[in-house]
Design a protein around this nucleic acid. Structure first.
Lengths: 311, 311
DNA sequence: CGGCCTTACGCATGACGTAATGATT
DNA sequence: AATCATTACGTCATGCGTAAGGCCG
């Protein structure tokens, strides 16, 4: 049994049981993969893949187990390399942060700025995607940590760390009637106007829905966007009022727009970091996390990684 | 990085940093190991072993991490093979049970008898040792499950399953004054006579000590043995009275000896099964466990294996 | 000097790429 | 006909064993 064979196995499964695609992904020849998989199957005495004539069409029952274990082995092998790298030069390496627009645009910049100054040797990259996508990036190893408000709890294999809580604001254009409102803003006031907010499954959208539902109101959502900049643009055009994360409003930059605090209308949301429990984290990764959320010290993170269940 | 290289690494560490011994243990040449380890170190860019001139004298800090991960990888590789075997023929394979004398002699025989009839294709073997030894057998993979009363809780990496509780009896030779005692046996009565019982760290010995201590008594232990047969022999010779596991007394075989129930004098002991949490168990292993302790169904065992902490 | 690790060298296995064949849709 | 996997084959890498060479106690 060789590590390569396991790599082939896993890649074929990953590529939807297509050996040719796996070969391409691994920059090798397709017959090589075919043969190695066959050799491994011979050695184990079990078929991993079901072949219909000469086509791979399914994974056998033992194959499923074998794939699971193979993935674990490969992941550990990767960890091994990381441990070595860590000791070779703890100031250099890579760090891939998968996150959503809101985090990347409003929450992360100061952290990233500091981090890059402190660790100039680390190749930091940000991978933007939907909450589900970024979790999958972390799951399949193409990103190290996920930062998002939604979706991380869907993946039991990811440890979830609370970073910070935040509230929402209503943003309106100049001269909007809501600005003249006497007393505290009520949800009924908000529901009167066409609403522009986040796409479902993004940036705490579920809490917004729930707030209206619990009052028996049906908000008139005229536009859903993935990022706050789009929302602001359309609010500026007078299409409706925006419900956005408070941190996304900048009184200086967002000329012609006004924010009204809505903390009391919607439950606060919490932004989380998601990390594979079986990942080995480089020292600077802990440092990055702690810069982003100071209470998440290395000890706290390690404790969360070792907890099997929820935090 | 290759699996063999990891195997070499781990074996050298296991053999007390002696490359030649590792070579012998793995049935290969010593220069081969030397070279492969060097190649791996080159690839990783880190020394795993500290060499004093041409002698391996220590493990480096990264080496410790690397060894830990390597062991995990090799264990998973072993599991992979087992999974395959399980599917090739679920009726055949090996099962190594590490246990103490008392279990092997008195508790296990019926289980083993049944098991061998049901699974004639399984090569069952019993490895006898001290509680600590048998746990180490399971830890290093030379046994699959440990069955013992003492010691398993010392190893956090082993899942511990309760099997059954048992009590003790006092065994005395014919015509012993304790046989004429009116009323219930008291611990003070026992303490009057020279005592023969288990060696420390064996078969619930700690509970025996505690019972005397809590009454402020100092028992006169004249002989400690590892197994009950030795205890009985000396009781028969009149050297003293025995304190043994009740199940170890057989009214038919043990002629000339008499047992007096002592459940009320000593806390009951519980016999446990210890299994590595990261082991893959063959189907018949679950069956063996369930035969031994019927409440330990496959589901119960799996649940215990997946629990990180204590049961 | 004796154990112990490394270097040097040669062989043989085997991993991989190219080309050709066969099966499936 | 196109796609995709297997078989066949040649080449090159490399793992491993033997023999020789230093280092340490």
């Amino acid at each position: 049994m060789k590590l390569q064979q396991l790599r082939y196995l896993v890649e074929v499964a990953k590529q939807g049981l297509n050996v040719s695609d796996a070969a391409e992904a691994l920059h090798t020849s397709q017959p090589g993969i075919s043969k190695q998989i066959r050799l491994l199957e011979d050695e184990l005495g079990v078929q991993v893949f079901v072949r219909n004539g000469k086509r791979v069409v399914d994974v056998t029952a033992p194959g499923k187990e074998i794939l699971k274990i193979s993935e674990r082995i490969l992941r550990e092998a990767k960890n091994l390399k990381r441990v070595a790298e860590e000791f070779v030069n703890e100031q250099e390496g890579g760090l891939v942060v998968a996150t959503t627009h809101t985090q990347a645009r409003y929450a992360l910049p100061p952290t990233i700025h500091d981090f890059m100054q402190r660790y100039p040797g680390v190749k930091l990259s940000i991978k933007q995607g939907s909450p589900t996508q970024i979790c999958e990036f972390v799951m399949d190893g193409s990103a190290d940590i996920a930062i998002a408000t939604e979706g991380i709890d869907q993946f039991p294999e990811l440890a979830m760390l609370d970073c910070y809580s935040w509230n929402r604001s209503i943003i309106v254009p100049d001269n909007h009637p809501l600005l003249d409102l006497k007393g505290q803003l009520r949800i009924e006031d908000v529901a009167k106007y066409p609403i522009i907010t986040y796409d479902f499954a993004f940036t705490g959208r579920s809490k917004i829905n729930r707030a209206f539902e619990s009052c028996g109101l049906a908000p008139n959502v005229v536009l859903t966007a993935i990022d706050t900049d789009v929302i602001k643009t359309y609010v500026g055009l007078g299409l409706g009022i925006g419900i956005v994360a408070s941190m996304a409003f900048d009184v200086k930059r967002d000329v012609g727009l006004f924010a009204i605090d809505a903390s009391h209308l919607f439950e606060p949301s919490t932004t989380h970091i998601g990390i594979r429990r079986d990942a080995y984290l480089r020292g600077y990764t802990y440092s990055f996390i702690e810069r982003f959320a100071p209470h998440l010290t290395r000890a706290v993170v390690d404790a969360a990684l070792n907890n099997k269940g929820e935090d």
